[in-house]
Simulated scan of single mutants.
Amino acid sequence: MLYFGPVGDEELAEALRVAIGDFVRRARAGDRMPPGQAAVLGHLDREGALSIADLARRERVRHQSMTRTVHLLGDQGRVELRPHEADRRQVVVALTAAGREALAAERRHRSAGIASAIRDDLDDEEREIIRRIPEVLRKLQPKP
């Protein structure tokens, strides 16, 4: 969807939302790890150990669904359950070295696909525009 001439903020916002959504879906198409598992590993990588309830809230899924995901990751050696530091009755989910490496490999795989497309499908002017997009997107703070 290309726009020529003046475009209102709402139309531009909708075009951006659609383009980002399409891009994310295409970028994830070659993923080797189920998205729910990758999301859990990502939360643990960024935020440290979390309870199953916290992970379920972050992913907006039921506690039972998150328990299943955590156990699958545990069976793969990517997470481990540990006692909560402050309340030993509670359990938290922690990322293991194997989980960190699996997540890093998935991120490298996805980034390599995007880098290949940047190299092969864009001209110099388009690559220069792409270089600025992360900075610009970080400035956008949608209001609820």
Results as ranks from 00 to 15, higher is better:
residue 52 I to A: 14
residue 58 R to F: 01
residue 53 A to D: 12
residue 116 S to N: 06
residue 6 P to A: 15
residue 88 R to K: 12
residue 28 R to W: 09
residue 66 M to P: 00
residue 106 E to C: 05
residue 5 G to I: 14
residue 112 A to L: 07
residue 35 P to A: 15
residue 49 A to T: 00
residue 12 L to N: 06
residue 26 R to C: 06
residue 7 V to D: 04
residue 82 R to Y: 05
residue 43 H to G: 04
residue 28 R to T: 14
residue 122 L to Q: 03
residue 138 R to L: 13
residue 29 A to W: 04
residue 112 A to N: 09
residue 61 V to F: 07
residue 75 D to P: 00
residue 108 R to F: 11
residue 17 R to I: 02
residue 93 V to F: 02
residue 12 L to K: 04
residue 143 K to D: 10
residue 76 Q to C: 03
residue 42 G to I: 02
residue 113 G to V: 06
residue 131 R to A: 14
residue 134 P to L: 03
residue 52 I to N: 06
residue 100 R to Q: 14
residue 2 L to V: 13
residue 74 G to M: 08
residue 18 V to I: 14
residue 90 Q to M: 09
residue 98 A to Q: 13
residue 119 R to W: 09
residue 119 R to M: 06
residue 15 A to D: 10
residue 59 E to A: 13
residue 98 A to I: 03
residue 103 L to K: 11
residue 14 E to G: 07
residue 55 L to T: 01
residue 72 L to M: 05
residue 30 G to H: 04
residue 1 M to C: 01
residue 123 D to Y: 07
residue 84 H to S: 11
residue 94 A to F: 02
residue 40 V to I: 15
residue 100 R to Y: 06
residue 3 Y to A: 15
residue 97 A to C: 01
residue 104 A to C: 04
residue 108 R to T: 09
residue 74 G to N: 10
residue 53 A to E: 08
residue 56 A to G: 04
residue 62 R to M: 05
residue 77 G to Q: 00
